[in-house]
Amino acid sequence: MTLAMAEQRVDARRDKAVKRFALTDAVFAGISRAAAILVLLILSGVAISLVVGSWQALSTFGFSFLTTESWNPVTEKFGALAPIYGTVVTSAIAILIAVPIGIGIAIFLTELCPRPLRRPIGIAVELLAGIPSIIYGIWGLFVFAPFVQTTIQPFVINLFKDVPGLSSLFAGPPYGIGMLTSAMILAIMVLPFVTSITKDVFDTVPAVLKESAYGIGCTTWEVIRRIVIPYTRVGIMGGIMLGLGRALGETMAVTFVIGNAHRISPSLFAPGTTISATIANEFTEADGELYTSSLIALGLILFFITLIILAIARYMLMRIGRKAGA
């Protein structure tokens, strides 16, 4: 009788524990589902508010809003082509500069750097991500732009002045500020994100893979090219996309050094503007409904540009994953 009662008590405790665990799992699943739905609702709310706010400009100008360069608040003629061009060009150049340097730094820190120096250098690189963008902008305007104006731009202009194509790409008076200066500042801001994520994914490579490659006579370069990078290419792509997202949405640093000119020039040394810089500069001065709606329409365009780039990145990651599985 005592044994039967003990077994019943054990069964009761087991049933109670199972019910408690089931309740905990149900609560956890509900909270997770609610969080996911909340993110979708916030994203949808942002998109709807942007569409509603920009509807007047979109209905007034139509598709020409995307293809017109003119931006004149006096005559209320607005076009988004110049900010779109500046956003895409500066972000693309920043990524082209930052990605090779960031991957190189990550390779050095994980494969070549002496162990006592790895942590200090890694911390120094990561601290760059914590510097406010306004500091980058002030430094770019008062330190970097004068250096570019007196040193880099005159040298590049003289170097390519007789080269077809490149002469127009690097032409014009050396202002110091402009598209290329803005892109270089963005590259510095993007660099710690690319480096940090790439370094972290490099650290996930199993040591046995690299040791096996060294054991059959591979050089360090061969190990990096044939083992490390293929194993971590999905993570590298994620770091690049994160850096690109930062470059697309950067505002204050770009506003300081890009020149804020609503025109498209083939020269990278010419002043220009971006979507975020235009909104930051002019939103407080927008006194008309059409003017305000046009600025909100720029925000809507930037929103969709970001979504498209993230969708492309997701598709690329899926293809890389499928190839790796194959």
Rank of each mutant, 00 (worst) to 15 (best):
N158S: 13
L159Y: 08
K210F: 09
K161T: 14
S167F: 12
D203Q: 15
D203I: 08
S212K: 10
P164M: 06
I177S: 01
L191C: 09
S182N: 15
P164A: 03
V208T: 11
L166K: 02
D162G: 00
D200K: 00
P164Y: 05
S212L: 06
T198E: 03
K161D: 13
D162Q: 05
V208D: 10
S167T: 15
M189D: 09
S168Y: 11
G178K: 02
I177T: 10
V190M: 12
D203S: 12
T195L: 05
V205I: 13
G172A: 04
F170C: 01
Y175S: 14
P192V: 06
G176N: 05
I188F: 14
A187D: 08
A207V: 14
V205P: 13
F160N: 01
M179W: 04
A183D: 04
P192Q: 03
V194C: 02
I177V: 13
V190D: 04
G178I: 11
V194Y: 02
F193H: 09
A183N: 11
I197R: 05
P164Q: 03
I197M: 14
K199R: 13
I197P: 09
Y175H: 10
S168M: 12
P206N: 04
G178R: 01
G176E: 04
L191G: 06
S182H: 05
T204E: 14
L209I: 10
L191D: 09
T198P: 03
P174Y: 02
E211H: 14
V205A: 09
K161I: 14
S196W: 08
